[in-house]
């Protein structure tokens, strides 16, 4: 067992955990709950990208993770503005 196997296994578990969040994303009673679930899912995707980039030995995927974190932050901000009614 090498560190590659450990990282690959972790990535798969994080991916499955992100799938569970879809339940809250669809069934959240209010819009804010859905936004929170989406935000959590974005964090999980960044986590997944970091782990998979080590698994596949490619630095480019970490760059994509940085850009994804920034863009998901902008997306969260826009959802928040929309919920406030400022958009």
């Amino acid at each position: 067992m090498t560190t590659y196997h450990v990282l690959g296994f972790t990535a798969s578990v994080v991916g499955v955990a992100a799938v569970f969040l879809i339940a809250r994303l669809v069934g959240g009673p209010t819009m804010a709950d859905r936004a929170v679930a989406l935000d959590t899912m974005n964090t999980f995707v960044v986590c997944l990208m970091i782990l998979l980039s080590a698994y596949f030995d490619s630095v480019v995927m970490v760059d994509i993770a940085i850009v994804y974190a920034a863009l998901s932050f902008v997306g969260t901000m826009f959802i928040a503005r929309y919920l406030e009614g400022g958009l």
Partner: peptide
């Protein structure tokens, strides 16, 4: 982002 979401949900 958590701060923005909290404020938005309180204002909504």
């Amino acid at each position: 982002g958590a701060h923005a979401l909290a404020r938005a949900s309180h204002r909504s």
